[in-house]
Design a protein around this nucleic acid. Structure first.
Lengths: 204, 204
DNA sequence: TGGTCAACCGACCACTTAGTCGGTTTTTTT
DNA sequence: AAAAAAACCGACTAAGTGGTCGGTTGACCA
């Protein structure tokens, strides 16, 4: 326990800086040395803790990226009674976080999925798994929303879930370096309208 | 005119192969040599025609990427009387093309925007410009749709336009290597539902 | 005090990268 | 056919790249 403290601390420092730079510059465009330089650590330290650059990245995905997505996108919705309100609030909050971050490079998970799509099957799998967890959670919440009378019966929960995720990923791409404030606001208006159309009360 | 024929032919061969590989593997993960190897051309030939890798990529964006987006996403909608039907058909066709392409790496424009976001301002600008042309065209068509009685007056055309683009970009990311058939189908169902909600006939 | 070992160092290796340049081939012009 | 211009070749450079490895440090224990 106590013994592993230093080990964990260093690994965590590397992972944090690694995620920062991979997110900022992309995986293939970020070298191990880039990361180590900013931490005043050496190659030896890196390869003492991680087997390879890929192994390092996987560890980041499985620890930090998972947590980020979970905290920001899944937890705020999971099991909530009224899915419509929960999703609205969650997305609104997520976009606001992105807007207020002056250095925004897009949605972490979305960026990585794009970068590895068709280029690295193994890493793609880990990333897609996170997406799937998110999707399943959304579907479950939406289904529960049906039985609780918040969502119309005819709604295809899986369709709605992937549509929501896709639209969010897309808007986060466009929000970088644009007038993200306006884009985010407009996006939320449309999402609200869309969500209305799947809500129980507005059944045709 | 005639003089430039060989020049144009070689440049075009390079650009075509360049776009193919940049799209497949990403810009930073594709070397000039990768491209030249497949064309049986040399470094000399490349730097005779292009100033740098970046200059080369910009020329690809301004010629081929622009045209791709225009042909597939803008032209089929531009100026059409009924925007709702036009957008539906256009997106359906675009997704079908993606599905039937066994080697799909996502939406070309979306991938590049993601890769260069926050990494290369100049290139980002050229990519964003294409997005803007697309957006403006959508807005114009939607506005015309209002006066022609296809779109409800209260609709925010700009919001709808960026929402449509964002959702399309997002779903194209998810469709890679997944069960893209199902995803695409589900996506279209949701888009149709959403479009219904902005159509004139269904005004609340 | 001396030994042990996890944690870390940094020179080094084989390889790839974008870009250069003197020279050769091919095509066009005269 | 000769000269001129355009197109192309490929060895080379300098700066990285991921990864290795023999060696050092310093905390901890006996």
């Amino acid at each position: 326990m106590d013994k592993n403290l230093k080990r964990m601390a260093t690994m965590h420092r590397m992972q944090t800086k690694g995620l920062e730079l991979f997110y900022k510059k992309g995986y293939y465009n970020t070298s191990i040395d880039d990361i180590l330089k900013e931490l005043d650590l050496s190659k030896g330290a890196f390869y003492y803790h991680f087997q390879s650059k890929e192994d390092f990245f996987v560890s980041i995905v499985q620890n930090m990226v998972v947590r980020k997505v979970y905290n920001l996108m899944i937890e705020p919705i999971e099991g909530k009674a009224d899915p419509v309100t929960a999703i609205e609030r969650c997305f609104e909050n997520a976009l606001a976080t992105a807007e207020h971050n002056e250095l925004d490079y897009g949605f972490v998970l979305g960026n990585f999925i794009t970068e590895f799509n068709g280029r690295n099957q193994e890493i793609s799998k880990y990333l897609k798994d996170i997406y799937k967890v998110w999707e399943v959670n959304l579907v479950t919440t939406l289904q529960k929303g049906k039985t609780d009378g918040f969502i119309a019966r005819h709604v295809d929960s899986e369709g709605v879930a992937s549509f929501l995720i896709a639209s969010y990923m897309g808007i986060r791409v466009l929000m970088v370096e644009g007038n993200s404030r306006m884009l985010g606001y407009n996006y939320m208006q449309q999402i609200k309208q869309y969500l209305k159309s799947i809500a129980e009360t507005q059944l045709v």
